[in-house]
């Protein structure tokens, strides 16, 4: 394609948009809605995944120790366990510390007598809080720990984790389905808009073909029209989401009473946009191109 023809195609494509303003507006609006939904799904997914990852990496295996162990034995055991390559670190939580944590829990009934009793006859066990290098090794480490006599009980976050992972997968699958449906709807709607343009210009296409225009010569203006529609329909929701993201994050934080120390945190919008912008552009422009090509195909057989 020559540069000269390219300027011709741009001119024709834009002329057609301005001649059919209302239809162009309708398809831009459709694309905007699609990409907007994609954006919301994307922002939600990214934040969920981000938090799941945070929680995943923050999780420990707790191994409770035999009551009769003395300090040296405990140190010795800690040293032995630390030798296995899957383990990153071990925190020793003594009986006293465990009690302190327990009493520190705000949710406990504030009954001083009961607390005093508990302190005198501490029912809690000392434990190791074991942090893994990689969560995948969980099973291996549990097997290893269960072979050690002095360890009487192992607590793993397995069930809670599995729940989170399931939730993540579920949301991922649901948004994938929703996005696919939206894309199909979007392509059909853009196709319809361009079909109207094509219909209005059916005679022109015929004439062009009589004069000896190649299929691509006929197609380009429509592709550019579709691209422009897709581009605007991507730009509008991206800009809107960009400036409203923090507003919605704050609403969420208030609603869920999330503060700085909370486990849950939100990704900065710029970070999400690094992957959202290319994804949305590919989708929006792709919808525009596919919509225009599908429709024009059947009109080229002259």
């Amino acid at each position: 394609m020559k540069i000269l023809s390219f300027s011709h195609f741009i001119h024709e494509g834009f002329e057609s948009i301005f001649k059919n303003k209302s239809m162009a507006f309708a398809s831009i609006a459709t694309t905007t809605v699609c990409i907007f939904m994609l954006g919301i799904a994307f922002l939600t997914m990214e934040n969920i995944e981000y938090n799941v990852e945070n929680i995943e990496t923050g999780i420990n295996i707790t191994a409770f120790l035999d009551e009769n162990m003395i300090e040296e034995e405990i140190d010795q055991l800690k040293g032995i366990i630390l030798k296995s390559p899957q383990i990153e670190s071990i925190d020793y939580v003594s009986k006293d510390e465990a009690m302190k944590r327990f009493i520190g829990d705000e949710n406990l009934p504030n009954d001083p007598e009961l607390l005093n009793d508990l302190k005198e006859d501490n029912p809690l066990r000392a434990s190791f809080e074991i942090k893994l290098r990689n969560n995948k090794d969980e099973q291996v480490v549990i097997e290893l720990l269960s072979k050690i006599k002095q360890i009487v009980k192992i607590n793993t976050p397995k069930e809670a984790m599995q729940l989170l992972i399931n939730l993540k997968n579920f949301i991922q699958a649901t948004s994938a389905v929703i996005i696919i449906i939206l894309v199909v709807v979007g392509v059909i709607l853009i196709g319809n808009t361009i079909q109207l343009t094509v219909h209005i210009r059916k005679n022109e296409i015929r004439i062009m073909k009589y004069i000896g225009a190649t299929d691509w010569f006929v197609r380009w203006p429509f592709v550019i029209e579709g691209l422009f529609i897709g581009f605007l329909g991507t730009l509008i929701p991206l800009i809107t989401l960009f400036f409203t993201y923090n507003f919605f994050v704050n609403i969420f934080k208030q609603a869920l009473s999330i503060n700085e120390e909370s486990l849950i945190s939100f990704m900065p919008v710029l970070e999400i946009y690094q992957s959202l912008v290319p994804a949305a552009l590919i989708l929006g422009l792709g919808m525009g191109i596919v919509g225009s090509l599908i429709i024009i195909r059947k009109h080229l057989r002259v």
Partner: peptide, 24 residues
């Protein structure tokens, strides 16, 4: 006639050369 209604006489005639990618 099959003319392009939204193009002038000049543009209608010139279109035959645009199609074969002649220079302006």
């Amino acid at each position: 006639f099959k003319l392009f209604e939204n193009k002038t006489v000049f543009e209608n005639v010139a279109f035959a050369m645009k199609v074969i990618e002649e220079s302006p």
